[in-house]
Design a protein around this nucleic acid. Structure first.
Lengths: 338, 338
DNA sequence: ATGAAAGCGCTAACAC
DNA sequence: GTGTTAGCGCTTTCAT
């Protein structure tokens, strides 16, 4: 592999001149610039990015923490979609993406290692938990990082999120408008703030409509498997008054629908179902699923854009951005008949 | 950020001794080893991986080329799932994953750049095309790389794949066993070898059962959108004899099923449908989809394992591995009634 | 078993 | 505008 010295020799200039050409230095004559570029092409030279990183103390790489947990959640197209948004902006601004894979509990360690080893200039976190050690450690380490999700101490972080409370409230309001009063909520682990927010939106909608909140209607699910099916069935048997189910992720909604069908009931005639996140498949299933489009791609774009600005010192004050979420009404809900 | 010199000073040894501790050099006394490790912890030292990479001429990073094309294909859980397999092995063997995102046509350039800039030690390619420039260029560049898919000139590459011909043949045989003779095939762009293989398997099954091959039953789809719906409908109207549709990806099958339903026909009573790739959702839709499990996770594991072995010179001869694919029979196919 | 010194490929003062 | 030199943080001979 040719180095900067080989180019210098071939072009009859010094290595620093070659370096200046690489970095588009202003004070360099067009003649030498051309000459050097020709030499680079001739001998097939590519700058060694590792060497550049070492001296510039910057890798132009952002880290993406991805626990490869067995949770089905990971099979969620959410990740592919947000990755697309992240990739698009990163590429446009000349950054690479380093996937930091790790198993479950190691994520704190793995992230810090990537940062302290100078592998990445900044980090993207794809979830926000309550009492999150990872966030605290990263802040202590003074690494640039951006969260997709709403952290606690919201004014001490950079983050991007949907207004989950509002979107959830609107979605439940839609069910209420159709005449539903007994609405179950299937939500995720209560350690995730997104679960809390969607629950809060649910409660808010009930309150505004003077519907009594019934804690028996709430299920917290950890993982995404069979439990949902079992719990849906249990729920429906225990509470024959239920007419609607709100699942906080479309994948969960699919499982609920299946369980409802297995019980011999029909969606939406007997039970209305709504989801969240607008999985691309939700328009293809039968019945097509009413859900909330959270603009996952844009979430990825915005987060990356902010992160790169932080890395390049173009933002100093903590800052967040709320991305619109829109209800998409399809065929999984019916009016209550009196 | 502390460097190796700071540790050396604190421990009262030379930088090279610290380096030897970092690299588990055999000839180093336990006493100094302990002393140095203590200092490292005390001052919060982490080796700078960039500097290590520069001198070792090795980054311990593998590149993953991912065109962020608009194709829905990218929303396919296939990518999440294979990423999990790749991540698991990479992490276990101490490698990071660099996502090389690029738009459509740039993939050749982007991959070569990553390699020649010494950003990665090797590359993983997630598809095989006919007459593939990328593969040729990578081989010219003498970069370690492994393909997920069967390339042309199969004996000149490292690759991992399912036996798509066999799996496809078996799947079509299953339809034939149910009495189907008029089976449409919806497949991907003919530039992809996987499309060709699955078509060949289809043809083989017909031949073995002395069923005449009808080219009108074959549709090549580029992209995954509305076209599938339109084409399914056109196909069904033109060929009322059709009793089954084989889509080479589950997502395509979902769209076909929807189109069939929109035509007022029933799956599987009127038309049987089979898919491929065993999308996790295929068990959740109604009717649940008969498909082929290609063991995506394992595909990712094997490919990564081979790549790392190649990088570390543990394999020299070109080599490939075929991963089992299994038919999963669900409820989307019916027997033909005579 | 440990230290001194050179060098991986590049950039960035500082000279002129 | 271009060359000289030092140095980014680490490893690795070559000494001892």
């Amino acid at each position: 592999m040719p180095t900067i010295k080989d180019v210098a020799k071939d072009a009859g200039v010094s290595p620093s001149t070659v370096s200046r050409v690489i970095n588009d230095h202003p004070r360099i004559s067009n003649a030498t610039k051309k000459k050097v570029k020709k030499s680079m092409k001739k001998i097939g030279y590519h700058p060694n990015i590792i060497a550049q990183s070492l001296v510039k103390q910057k890798t132009n790489t952002i880290g993406l923490v991805m626990p490869y947990s067995a949770e089905e959640a990971f099979a969620n197209p959410f990740y592919s979609e947000i990755l697309r948004g992240i990739g698009a902006v990163a590429q446009e601004k000349g950054y690479s993406i380093l996937l930091i894979t790790c198993d479950g509990q190691e994520e704190v360690e793995a992230s810090l290692r990537a940062v302290k080893s100078k592998l990445v200039d900044g980090i993207l976190i794809l979830r926000a938990k309550k009492d999150d050690i990872l966030l605290k450690k990263l802040r202590e380490a003074e690494v640039p990082f951006v969260i997709v999700g709403r952290p606690e101490d919201a004014d001490k972080y950079y983050w991007v999120n949907n207004d989950n409370i509002k979107a959830s409230k609107n979605l439940v309001q839609h069910l209420i408008d159709l005449g539903h009063k007994d609405i179950a909520l299937i939500t995720g682990g209560s350690e995730y703030i997104v679960s809390q927010d969607r629950l809060d939106g649910y409660k808010l909608a009930l309150k505004e409509n003077k519907i009594k909140y019934n804690p028996e209607y709430i299920i917290h699910i950890h993982g995404n498997e069979e439990i949902i099916s079992k719990n849906t069935k249990k729920l429906l048997k225990k509470n024959p008054d239920l007419t609607a189910i709100f699942a906080v992720d479309d994948l969960m909604a699919y499982r609920s629908i299946l369980a409802i069908k297995e019980l011999g009931l029909k969606v939406p005639e007997d039970i209305s179902v709504v989801g969240f996140n607008n999985n691309p498949l939700s328009q293809l299933i039968t019945p097509s699923l009413t859900t909330v489009d959270i603009n996952t791609y844009q979430l990825g774009e915005e987060a990356t854009s902010i992160l790169i600005n932080v890395i390049e010192n173009k933002i100093s004050e903590y800052y967040h951005k709320v991305v619109e979420a829109n209800i998409i009404i399809r065929n999984s809900c019916d009016k209550i008949k009196f």
